[in-house]
Amino acid sequence: MSAYYLGIDIGAAASKAVVIDGQKKIIGAGVIPSGTNYATTASAVKAEALKQAGLQPADITFSVATGIGGRNASAGSYHGVIICDARGVNLTFPGVRTVIDIGGQGSQVITMDEDGRVINFNVSEICATGSARLLQVVARILQISIDEIGPLSLRATKPSSFSTSCTVFLETEVITRISQGDSLEDILAGIHRSIADKISGMSRGVALEKDFAVIGGGALDSGLVQAIDEKLGIKTLVPDNPRLMAALGAAVIAGEH
């Protein structure tokens, strides 16, 4: 009988599930909004990943949950998202030693060894500064979809300047920039610089080593990835499914159970 392992990541904004087989190959995955009932969300995202894998719940050998709501997921065990991020990226890009995870409510910079074991990390503080939450807020104000942010920002000619990286205060400043006639593209590029500044600050506490990867929902924004590259003077790798990395890492850990 084949072995299959499930990883579930219940994040602040989105929940993800990944099913891998005994060779650590992804055979099913799901992503849904986290909503307000993490237990229900966990069941739903798990069902989606199982459906894609063509499996039944009983086919899963072991499961591991992670993320802020992961303890509600009724999985076999729970591990923190930092460890899971590292393991997921280690499987995807074995040469990566530094991971920048830009999540829906917080971000983290993680360094790791060749086995995906954590060397050091720095987590964003209690506010949402430096997280993808800011992108959601700005998309709402500018009346664009979140997917449009990256491509638009890459067309900026004179990125706007913001005095703060605080999500709440920045909302007000974005409105000020609109009133001052800044273009949509320049405002978005300025926002990206603001987040990149925060990520740069977070990276000071850890000794960055190449290769670098950006993961999490923020990694889907090509403009933000470019801003981080420019700020840190690095070239980052982005996985095909950057939001799945923690769930993938959880599935890998499940396979070691």
């Binding site: 923190g80 930092i82 993680i110 954590v118 060397i119 987590v123």
Partner: peptide, 10 residues
């Protein structure tokens, strides 16, 4: 506690 788990590796 989730961070503490990672910090043990550190």
């Amino acid at each position: 506690l989730a961070r503490a788990e990672a910090f043990e590796q550190t």
